[in-house]
C-alpha cells in the first residue's frame, strides 16, 4: 500500500514503446509543498515521467499516487475515464508550447473548465479569472486572443488557466523552452511566486539556475533511470556521479 503521508508517490514506474524502454523502474516521492526539478538530456525520459503523472502518457507498469488516491488505477474504460477526469482536475499542467485555446480569449481560456466542470456561474468564473490573471500579471490583457499575445504572455495565461482549477499539484513541462530568452524571466517570476505560496510543483526544465534557486530537490535522469537525486546544492555543486558531472559540464558549455 502507499504511504499516505507522502503527497505524490511514484512507485516502480515503467514505460516502454515496443522493445524501447523509456522509463526503467523509477520511484519518486514529493512532499506537500515541495518543489522538485527534473533535469537531464533530451530523450532521458523526463517529460514522459511528468506526463505519466496525469496519465497523458500511460505507464506500462508501476503506480502513481496523489494525496492518497491512485491516479492510474486499473478500471473498466468508462469508469477509468470518469476517475481520471476527476484526478486531472487536481493536477495542473503547463506545456512547452502553451496549448492555449486559440478560439477563446485569455479570460475564456481560464473560465472554460471551471464553468464546465465545477458548475461555476458566469460571475463566479469571471471573478476567478480576474484573480488568477491578476496573479500572473495578465489582468489588462484578459480579453485578448492568444494570437495577440507574446510567448511569455501566453505562458502566463496558460499558468492562470491551470491554477483556476485549484490544483493540488502543478506540473511544468519545459515551460520556458519555447520562449525567446528575454521572455523567460516573466514566466520564471510567476513560478517563483507559486513557490512562495507553497504550491507543490514538479518541473522539467533546462534552466539550471532557476532550478537551483527555487527547488527543494533535483533529479537527474538519463536513459530512463534516475541517476542522481538530492538538494540542488549537492546535485549542482558536488554531484556524486560521473554522468551527472558530464551532463552539467556539457550544459554549462552549451550555455556559454
Amino acid at each position: 500500500m502507499s504511504d499516505h503521508r507522502k503527497f505524490v508517490q511514484i512507485r516502480h514506474a515503467q514505460k516502454s514503446f515496443g522493445t524501447l524502454e523509456v522509463l526503467k523502474d523509477i520511484s519518486l516521492t514529493v512532499e506537500r509543498g515541495q518543489i522538485v526539478a527534473i533535469i537531464g538530456p533530451s530523450g532521458s525520459g523526463k517529460s514522459t515521467l511528468l506526463r505519466a503523472i496525469n496519465d497523458l502518457d500511460p505507464l506500462t507498469g508501476g503506480e502513481v499516487w496523489l494525496d492518497g488516491v491512485q491516479v492510474n488505477k486499473s478500471l473498466p474504460f468508462r469508469q477509468y475515464e470518469k476517475h481520471i477526469n476527476q484526478m486531472r482536475q487536481d493536477i495542473g499542467m503547463v506545456f512547452q508550447h502553451f496549448n492555449l485555446f486559440p478560439h477563446m480569449t485569455a479570460r475564456e481560456n481560464v473560465t472554460m473548465a471551471p464553468k464546465m466542470l465545477k458548475g461555476l456561474s458566469k460571475e463566479e468564473a469571471d471573478k476567478l479569472a480576474e484573480e488568477q490573471l491578476d496573479k500572473v500579471g495578465m489582468l489588462e490583457r484578459m480579453d485578448y486572443y492568444p494570437s495577440q499575445l507574446s510567448g511569455g504572455q501566453k505562458q502566463r495565461v496558460a499558468i492562470a488557466r491551470a491554477l483556476a482549477m485549484k490544483p493540488k499539484l502543478m506540473l511544468f513541462d519545459e515551460a520556458t523552452s519555447a520562449l525567446d530568452p528575454e521572455l523567460v524571466d516573466e514566466v520564471n517570476q510567476v513560478m517563483k511566486k507559486l513557490a512562495e505560496e507553497h504550491m507543490t510543483m514538479i518541473i522539467v526544465t533546462h534552466e539550471m539556475d532557476f532550478a537551483a534557486s527555487v527547488c527543494d530537490r533535483v533529479l537527474f535522469m538519463d536513459q530512463g533511470v534516475v541517476v542522481e537525486e538530492g538538494p540542488p546544492s549537492v546535485v549542482f555543486k558536488n554531484p556524486e556521479k560521473e554522468r551527472t558531472r558530464a551532463f552539467l559540464r556539457k550544459h554549462l558549455e552549451g550555455a556559454k
Partner: peptide, 17 residues
C-alpha cells in the same frame, strides 16, 4: 494540434467535452 486535446484533457475535460 494534439496539444489542444492534451491541454483540454489535462484540465479534466472528458473526451467528448
Amino acid at each position: 494540434d494534439k496539444g489542444q486535446k492534451e491541454a483540454a484533457r489535462t484540465l479534466g475535460l472528458s473526451r467528448w467535452q
